[in-house]
């Protein structure tokens, strides 16, 4: 089976019926999105790999419970988020703004008030990808989570709100703040 135009939901049904190739198609279709969502939130690559494996194992195991009319992407990212939270609780390795400390946030704010010095120029970064990760880590955890869910999961505000168990308005607010901050932090790469 190739990476056909079949919907994720149909592929899930076929996999639940015992067709392994359908899972391969789904995995190839979504692996990078899930990977970015995880890698940009946890502390290091090995943690991201561990959570990534847990996520896809859970998808494979719970495929029979996937409801036919559900949105696969929302279901997948709900699993990813829950597994990431579980992992952080188990290992206390979650890298959030809290774990970085408010000091970092203060430094960023200070830097952004000086137009001559870009916030990312003050930090030695090898490339844009690192700059992006660094910028994401400057966001409060809730904002980063909401932004990554929406952009990587290609989810609506309502879906992000449902996954994060926040109200629609709160979620919308988090997304706006996150984008404003990122725009500021990544200005020199625009």
């Amino acid at each position: 089976m190739t990476d056909s135009a079949e919907s994720d939901e149909v592929l899930m049904q076929r996999y639940a019926g015992g067709e392994a190739a359908a899972f391969g198609t789904l995995f190839r279709r979504h692996e990078l999105r899930v990977w970015r969502y995880l890698e940009r939130q946890v502390v290091n690559r090995s943690s991201a790999e561990e959570v990534m494996q847990e996520v896809w194992f859970a998808v494979a195991r719970d495929a029979v419970h996937f409801e036919r009319h559900s949105c696969f992407s929302a279901w997948l990212f709900t699993i990813a988020r829950n597994r990431m939270i579980d992992y952080s609780r188990r290992h206390r390795l979650h890298l959030s703004l809290d774990s970085l400390g408010y000091e970092a946030q203060a430094v960023v704010q200070q830097l952004t008030t000086e137009p001559s010095v870009g916030p990312l120029a003050a930090v030695v970064l090898e490339d844009r990808a690192q700059a992006l990760k660094q910028a994401l880590r400057q966001l409060p955890q809730e904002q980063r989570d909401a932004f990554l869910l929406q952009i990587e999961g290609d989810l609506s505000v309502e879906e992000v709100a449902a996954i994060t168990r926040a109200s629609f308005e709160t979620t919308k607010s988090r997304l706006r703040y996150a984008r404003l901050k990122l725009r500021e932090l990544l200005r020199e790469y625009a």
Binding site: Y15, A20, F23, G24, F27, E31, L32, W35, R36, E39, R45, A48, E49, M52, Q53, W56, F57, A60, D127, R128, A129, A131, L132, I151, L182, L186, Y189
Partner: peptide, 24 residues
């Protein structure tokens, strides 16, 4: 974000991919 992400070469390891697909 998408432009920078597209240039980000970070991927899950081949070992992980094999394990997931074998399990599935």
């Amino acid at each position: 974000y998408r432009r920078i992400s597209a240039r980000d070469g970070s991927r899950p390891s081949e070992q992980l991919r094999r394990a997931v697909l074998a399990h599935a």
